[in-house]
Design a protein around this nucleic acid. Structure first.
Lengths: 335, 335
DNA sequence: ATGAAAGCGCTAACAC
DNA sequence: GTGTTAGCGCTTTCAT
């Protein structure tokens, strides 16, 4: 039951099987060029010895790593959800993922450096907080795909949701329910905030509601939504679209404390379809990003770049989809 | 702006500096044995060339990776929170983390295999779903630390919360508020459920409330809590402790729909202090696991094993701490 | 179908 | 203080 002091190597398996290491290598990789009988025997021995190829040595020699580096943020509500799709897509394409997390005390820079040292062939960054210049420098070294954030930089690929459209969907939904006085809680300088704001404005105008446009400062946290609610209370609209789910719940909570219930008195739409928005307690109508599709496209694009497949546009824009839950409803009678 | 077709190697830097690769190696590692002037010049050149050491080659040669493999589950509410602490601790000890995620379509086995191929020196598994036998097999190969799950296996280190004590804290809190009819929503076969149940029972008895013990079947999901609520409605207790936060919110929601408000009519305590329990909307009193402490201890233990520091006990048990929020309050007057 | 030999980028042991 | 040499575990020619 002791930890074996030495790992099993190709040479061990070869010795045991009485063949050369080259042959074992062929068998382990499933490459053509080995007899069926030998193949079987070598496999059996490798299994018995508990041999596991050393990916480092393997990659060092072959020059390729088939490794995709992914940076995500532990604080971000749905970054982990994206990982699921990323693993699926990478797996299907015969690539491996290596993860590096950004934490409150670990900058994205550190996360990226780890990945670079691992000799990833491409980087997939979830809502990267790196400055555009840094992203450009990175992209000069290896293919970089940014997810869920716009990057105005020729060498960086982008996979993101059509946020303008998402915001429009929210407004369309509310107008369909009879609402006219619809406010928008803004996301400030957050990535995507400008697009969502614009989508809201455009949709309002398209519905002939340009005169009722009302944008209140907000942010990405619950407290930002709460603050926005305070600003709304003097003259409450009948519906609100928000920058994200967290802001929406903060808003809802303050409204509720002041006797305004959703959807009875006011309708609220979030953004992101964060896992908590599905909680029965929260039950938030929200705009869902198509996470699976985005993940698939991001991996696809990364691999295209690695294998130098020519791609038409740098940006991939995915349509969002409104998830109607319990915080939106018909216009209250008196209002 | 093209991706350079070849990476910069030690040899490139050496050539440019007009010194040997060995010397550059010494400089890059900050090892003693190089002149100050040379050191500076080499560093400058490496910087200018954008040289990044190849960790694979480095580790292949040195035999050590100083790499800690971590397996977490994307579905688990606070696994990502643990990562933060893990990174901090590893960083401090001069180790690197390499992450591998378990997803709905990627078994822990696959996650572990990736890590093994990377030649981690130890594995830290967050609430591993591997069977004990598999854990034992793993532990025979390298040090394994299981977090937040008991493992009855001599060779596996365990860092977990004192769940019995956590459940007791919940009951103590409720009794302190005057409650006597306290029910417990059980976690079934989930890891930790037995301990939490036992803690509840013991605390009830200690308070002379043994006759009022009432355990209803539950689970780890919101729907499990909802189901438990249904069973409670015929004869509602004045307070409930639950297996986890998700079950607690499911419970709370059903109760609320039936006119039972927390904490006015009934008090509810969750478990885990999941991020959503902090939402103003949820505002759940809950038992918090000391994530930072656990992370520190897990990394410490992993490193102790790697460096074969003798350790006294295999199990590290961390005290939890009750976080009082808005779902618990004094006993309702009539009841 | 199989083996011998070279070498991926780096570090360690030793020489100078 | 600096260079030389050998080799980590594997894949890849190139022979056979």
């Amino acid at each position: 039951m002791q930890t074996p002091d030495r790992r099993i190597t190709l040479a061990d398996v070869a010795a045991e099987a009485g063949v050369s290491t080259a042959l074992v290598s062929i068998v382990m990789r499933g490459a053509p060029g080995a007899g069926a009988a030998t193949r079987e025997r070598v496999l059996e021995i490798a299994q018995r010895l508990g041999y596991q190829p050393d990916s480092r040595a393997r990659l060092l020699r072959s020059g390729r790593s088939r490794l995709l580096g992914v940076v995500f943020d532990v604080r971000h509500p749905f970054h982990v959800d994206v990982l699921t799709g990323l693993y699926d897509a990478a797996d299907k394409a015969g690539y491996q993922l290596t993860l590096s997390a950004e934490t409150p005390r670990r900058a994205d820079r550190a996360a990226v450096d780890d990945l670079l040292q691992d000799r990833c062939e491409a980087l997939i960054l979830l809502t990267p907080s790196l400055r555009t210049a840094d992203l450009a420098a990175l992209a000069a070294r290896l293919p970089v795909v940014a997810m869920m954030r716009a990057v105005r930089q020729r060498d960086v690929d982008v996979v993101q949701t059509d946020d303008r459209r998402g915001a429009r969907q929210a407004v369309d939904h509310l107008v369909g329910l009879g609402h006219r006085r619809i406010a928008h809680v803004d996301g400030g300088t957050q990535h995507g905030a400008a697009e969502r704001r614009t989508g809201y404005e455009e949709a309002m105008r398209d519905h002939g509601l340009g005169g009722l446009i009302r944008i209140v400062p907000g942010g990405s946290g619950e407290e930002d939504g709460a603050r926005a609610a305070a600003g709304l209370l003097a003259d409450p609209p009948t519906a609100v679209t928000t920058f994200n789910d967290l802001a929406a719940t903060g808003l809802l909570d303050v409204l509720r404390r002041h006797g305004l219930d959703a959807p009875r008195d006011i309708s609220v739409v979030g953004y992101d379809d964060s896992s908590f928005s599905r909680l029965a307690h929260v039950d938030l109508t929200t705009v869902a990003q198509d996470i699976e599709e985005m993940a698939t496209r991001a991996v696809g694009r990364a691999i295209d770049r690695i294998e130098t497949v020519p791609v038409a546009r740098r940006e991939v824009v995915i349509a969002p989809r409104l998830v109607v839950r319990g915080t939106t409803g018909p216009l209250p009678i008196r209002s």
